[in-house]
Structures are given as structure tokens and as C-alpha cells.
Nucleic acid binder design. Sequence first.
DNA 1: GTCTATATGCTGATAGAC
DNA 2: GTCTATCAGCATATAGAC
Lengths: 195, 195
Amino acid sequence: MARKTGSHSQITGPLVRQAALRLFAQGGYAAVSMRQIASEVGLQAGALYLYTPDKQTLLFTLMHEHLEELLTAWEAVEKPVAPIEQLQAFTRFHIRFHLERLDAVFIANMELRNLSDENFAVIEKLRKAYEDGLQSILEAGHATGAFRVPDLKLATLAIIAMLTGVNTWYREGGRLSRDRVERIYWNMVRRSVGA
Amino acid sequence: MARKTGSHSQITGPLVRQAALRLFAQGGYAAVSMRQIASEVGLQAGALYLYTPDKQTLLFTLMHEHLEELLTAWEAVEKPVAPIEQLQAFTRFHIRFHLERLDAVFIANMELRNLSDENFAVIEKLRKAYEDGLQSILEAGHATGAFRVPDLKLATLAIIAMLTGVNTWYREGGRLSRDRVERIYWNMVRRSVGA
DNA sequence: GTCTATATGCTGATAGAC
DNA sequence: GTCTATCAGCATATAGAC
């Protein structure tokens, strides 16, 4: 028989982060206690400190992992040559990726003010890197004359805000399928850049 | 000489709400204590309960006042006849109104989960009423053939998300004036509905 | 690796003096 | 209308037993 206690670090650590993700998204970072997180995993509060030095680092880790995953996933997407097809790929990727991670996206957008200054700077840099991915597509389309965009930076921010907005209302099993939503939004994005 | 203590209810009440608005926006509802709010106004914690029955009602009141003001202000806007001009009026109104109330907008979007069920229902109804204002413009434009919108509901939500997104990055004294931002966004909104 | 016990401090809200 | 004092409870984080 295996012993009841032992090297569970590789199992318990992810479980702790998973529980924290769900609880932070549900109640907000400040409103969730370490005891609640521990209870969710089946631990006592003290044991959590084997997996995170403190509550703040736990929050930071969740956001950091989320953004690293976002950048990696976007890099892995095969990029078409034509800017308009790149923009379509981005639109569909963004909606799909974000809809699959409601909790993480919610936290990444809402809990920025609860990060320490250093942690905030790291997260902002990653978020900016993602925005640059879209902006370079818009620049390419602007250069070839495929898009008519009044301001590249604002168009980038506007499109991302519009697409991420899907997370606030979309629910599985609703009126529209994911694929249908992606098509409708692509239609609006395409028009918005004059393509 | 007027007495030092006395009927300050009409002054102190608004000051309490103003302080709560700023502090909730800055640190989040759950992270702000009644003592902090009191201290900001120059009161002791106990005195706050003359102006609100509890912390939850204070939050609800802030959101409720904000949304009532939003609906009243939009009703007061003179409406052109042509749908495209109505949509332009909405776009400019929305950006302007929201940019002037960064704290209230932030709270109204982020603290919904901290409302009791009854309070949440009230706030949701008001938010829905505002959305309906935009949706009826899109419907009118769809009927006249002025707009080409793949889905009225989604277009409504997409446009509002895009416009409210301005609040996350716009800062007074930046690269662009408010008026310039309004024009650029109007350009994108107009195109997005195929007008 | 997890538990129990504990230190220290802050929380929302109320009672009653002035 | 405001203050002081207070209640009962929960917070994060640590120490040390097992």
C-alpha cells in the first residue's frame, strides 16, 4: 500500500491553482480566503503555503500562466499570407481561446489592481505583446491597402475589446454555436477595418 | 455662529457615496473597509450607518444611481431621424458619458457579483434597457436597409463592448482628444454595421 | 506533506454617551 | 449627527508535531 501522505506536490500544486482560479473568478481575489481555497482542495490552510509563498503570488501565477499560454497558442497558429486571412485567423482564435477559459480571462481583466507593482509590470508586458500581434496584422493590411483603418492603435484596442466582450454573455447551449458566433464577429471585424 | 454638529445629512450623505465610489473603484468592494470610507470623509465608522443601512446597500446605491443617470441622459439626447445619424449620436454619447465617469463605470462592470440577488436583478434590468436603446437603432437601420447587420443582438453587444473599452486606456492629456477618439470610433462603428 | 495551534490584526455592525 | 467602546468572527501567515 502506498502511504497516505507523501510526495503529492505535483498533484496538489495544480489542484490548488485550479481551485484558486475558480474561487477568485467567482468571488473576487479580496473576498476569497486562503481557508476557502484549502477547503476546496481538501487541505488545511497552513498546507497551502507549501505551494505558494503567499496569496499575492498565487494570483500572479494564475495570470502569468494564462498569458503565457495565450501567447504560445497564438504563435502556434498557422499564419496565412494575406492580411485579411490573418485577421480572420486572429478573430476566430481569440474568441475560441477566450471562451475556453472564462475564469482565467475574467481574473486577468479584473484583478490587475490587486497585483503588486512589479507583478503588474510583468503582466502588462505580456498583454502588450499579444496586442502587438494584432496590430502588426492591421499594419500589414494597411500597407497593402487591404484595410482602411483610421488609427492602428485604436483599431487594435477596439477589436480586442469587442471580441473579448463575447465572454460576458456567451453560454454553452445558448441560441448560437461557437462557430456561428465566430462567423458573425468576423463579419463585423472585417467591415470595421473597411475590408 | 452655526453649531459644529447638526443637520449635515444632505452634505455628508453625498460625500460618503463619493468616497465609496472612489475607494471601491480603486481597491474593489471586498477589499475596502467601512473604516476606510469613514476615514476618507473624516468620520468614525459608526457614523456611516446613518447614511446607509449596510455596505451592500451602499454598493447597490452607487450602481443604481449611475445607471439611472445613464438612461436619463440618453433619453435627453435629441434624436435625429435617420438611423445612421442616431447611431452616430449614440456612439458619441456613449463614449463621452462613460469617459466622464471612470469610477462608476468600473464599479458597474466589475462588482456585479457582489450584489445580492434582488439588487442584481434591478441593475440587470436597467442595463438591459440601455442596450435596448442601441438595439432599436440597429433595427431601424436594418429595416430601412441603411445597415447590414448579421445579428442584431450580437451587434448591439459588440458595439457596446467596443465603445466601453475606451475607458480602459483613455487618459486625459494623451495622444488623442476626446473628440478625435469619438470620431475614430464612429468611423469603425459605422463600417462595422455596413453603413 | 499535512495537520493543529496560535499570533496579531482587521472586519461589519451595534449601543449608548454627548 | 457624531463619537467611543465593544462584540463576535475571520483574515494571513507561521511554528512545530507527526
